[in-house]
């Protein structure tokens, strides 16, 4: 399975935020997207998900154009930067909605065993983030979009999340972006850099210095 997003044009106040962006994701490979603050990484993921409508875009799955928002297919999951789980729903119910098991979750993240039947409001900011990542990553689907999954997460949990991402990439297309670029470089099979509104396929991480994304490597 191959996902391609092509000819993305996103304008605001007649100024391009994204222009001529092309990204390709494949099942079995992790695609990393790097870029400075405000380079349009989150907007690009929202466009792929179908939440944000740009001026122009072309999305293809296995060379077939997709015109409806992808999220309506139910096969794509998106981790946004901010909390999205409603505060008052019991988490076990949330897991049921995503056809996942709370018991399986706590075997991966044992610190959550202290909770009997929590709601989102009972969790800390980092714990909420872990739950959201797990739901998006592990629930049934073909495409996963992860927007800054490692922000505000304890290193030991980042290691567990990385293991889960590697496990899930066998059956899914995974697109990931984060400012913790070392994790992205280590995890990704392909790297794109968003720079000056467009995308560039990075073949050698040292190129990131030439493009002004890093000072040193």
């Amino acid at each position: 399975m191959i996902l391609e997003i092509d000819n993305v044009e996103l304008l605001h106040d007649n100024k391009f935020i994204l222009n001529g962006v092309y990204i390709k994701g494949e099942k079995g490979r992790i695609t990393g997207i790097l870029g400075k603050n405000g380079s349009g990484k989150s907007s690009l993921l929202k466009i792929i998900f179908g939440h944000l409508k740009p001026q122009n875009k072309l999305i293809r799955i296995n060379k077939q154009p997709i015109t409806r928002p992808l999220y309506l297919s139910g096969t794509i999951k998106y981790l946004s930067q901010k909390d999205s789980i409603p505060k008052n729903i019991p988490l076990k119910k949330v897991f049921n909605l995503f056809n996942l098991s709370w018991e399986s979750f706590i075997t991966s993240f044992e610190n959550f065993k202290k909770y009997k039947n929590p709601k989102t409001r009972d969790l800390s900011g980092g714990e909420k983030r872990i739950v959201e990542i797990y739901l998006v990553l592990m629930s049934k689907g073909d495409i996963v979009l992860l927007d800054e999954p490692f922000s505000n997460i304890t290193p030991i949990y980042i290691e567990i999340i990385i293991k889960l991402i590697i496990q899930e990439k066998k059956n899914k297309i995974i697109l990931i972006t984060d400012h913790l670029y070392r994790y992205i470089l280590d995890l990704s099979d392909n790297i794109y850099l968003l720079n000056n509104t467009t995308s560039t396929l990075i073949k050698n991480p040292a190129e990131l210095i030439n493009y002004g994304y890093l000072n040193h490597f």
């Binding site: 907007s43 929202k46 739901l135």
Partner: peptide, 24 residues
């Protein structure tokens, strides 16, 4: 707000339901 990339709670929770395949 979306175009300015300034998130508000109102739209954040929509992602939860969109992830379940519901039309916004």
């Amino acid at each position: 707000l979306t175009i300015n990339k300034i998130e508000i709670t109102y739209t954040d929770s929509f992602f939860f339901y969109e992830n379940l395949g519901l039309h916004n």
